[in-house]
Amino acid sequence: MGNDGFLASKDIKSDFLQELVDHFRDNRETLRQQWLKETTAKGLLANLTPEEIKTESITIYDTCVGCLETGKYDAAEVYANMLAERGVLRGMTTEQIIGNFLTLRDIYGRSLFQRYQHDFNRLSTALDIYEPVANTILSIVALAFIKERERVVRLQQEAIRELSTPVLQLREGLLMLPIIRVLDTYRARQLTEQLLHAIRAHRAKVVVMDITGVPSVDSKVANHLVQTVEASRLLGATVVATGISPEIAQTLVTLGVDLSRLNTVGDLQGGIEKAERLLGYEGFKE
């Protein structure tokens, strides 16, 4: 619309920007209280203490105005990440977070309507300046919130992953370690640690390590498997490896892994039978 005349030069634009910033600063208390009144009425602040509400709302208000003034969003990003990390956002639902910022956006917007209702050109320019800033802030907050959620999900996945490699006791002195899915070195290390501690805790003499569920190995993982076998032996336990697919066997040979060091049996059942024979001998002979 016809704001070309009004925004003739950059200077005027920055003057006007300053006018907006001053407007928001001058009316801070009124607008902030209005914001809190509306969000409280909508039940968006349910999880926060009055003190948190006060300090957080002042900071959020000032940070937003700061973004408008400087055109830089670093402070908003830092603050949003901090909120997320501190768990302030975590206790709130997505609806509450977005709702809070949408409300704040409306409040800023309405105050502009009120101020410039008799000057359409100015109102339109004010919205042109203000809206992109409001949108950017909103997306920064949403992103921080989502990133935090993703982090939590990752931690949970980690926990599930640990659970998904159980060390099972089949009978006295006999442990079974079914390895499923692709092993990365981090998980492989975890697995070895778990197994070694389990050997000690259960006083195991034989471990059946079944890798039927492992589609492929690289040299690092192959080395890790061998290390696991060797470390188990140092604790006095024999490892019987089962379910080595022809592809993996081929890889191991290509990688120069000494297969004679691995006590291998074709399938899991055969492995368990062999383990029981080893236990029956009551011996350490290989």
Binding site: T192, E193, L196, R200, A231, L234, L235
Partner: peptide
């Protein structure tokens, strides 16, 4: 031989 020690050894 402790589990952690065994792991470091190998």
């Amino acid at each position: 031989i402790q589990p952690d020690v065994a792991f470091s050894m190998v």
